[in-house]
Amino acid sequence: MSERPEAIDPDVDLHVPDQRAETVGGAKWPVLAVISAGGALGASARYGLALAWPVPVGGFPWSTLAINVLGCALIGVLMPLISEGGRRAHHLVRPFLGVGVLGGFTTFSTYAVEVSRLLARQQAGLAMAYAAGTLLGALGAVSLAATATRRALAARTGAEYGVRTP
């Protein structure tokens, strides 16, 4: 049996046959609908957090940093649960939670504009700190969350088969 190809791109990866097929014919409408609904939910949460935690002009954009790092931690939990190691979930879970909610919650464009605005205001140090801080926070969060989730899943699988895990 050949190994099932695993996605690199969690939004959609055409190397994965199930994902390639999910826009064929009428199947695409529920997929697009849950992505749309999830995106609206995620963006609403981001908008709400930005309103609750406003950043003054020239200030460090803490709210966007927190949103992006949190969203990266959550996708690091989600993807091992629903797609790695041959695990499967309902076919609308990834489109709704991964593509929609987390994709709508996190934002690259706001991050890029905030770095650019700090640069344009000659606040190079703050711009660099924010640019690098978000990158390190996001990549660290996704890596730690994915590792912890995979370990938890492996421990549970091991327990089911009566294997003791350290």
Partner: peptide, 28 residues
């Protein structure tokens, strides 16, 4: 700005997808 910026651009772009795919590339 709310419609096209916070809404459209915010949801069109993504940091979560970017970070997970970067992790996957490195792991592979």
């Amino acid at each position: 700005y709310a419609l096209l910026g916070t809404g459209l651009c915010g949801a069109l772009t993504t940091y979560s997808t970017f970070s997970y795919e970067t992790l996957r590339l490195a792991e592979r």
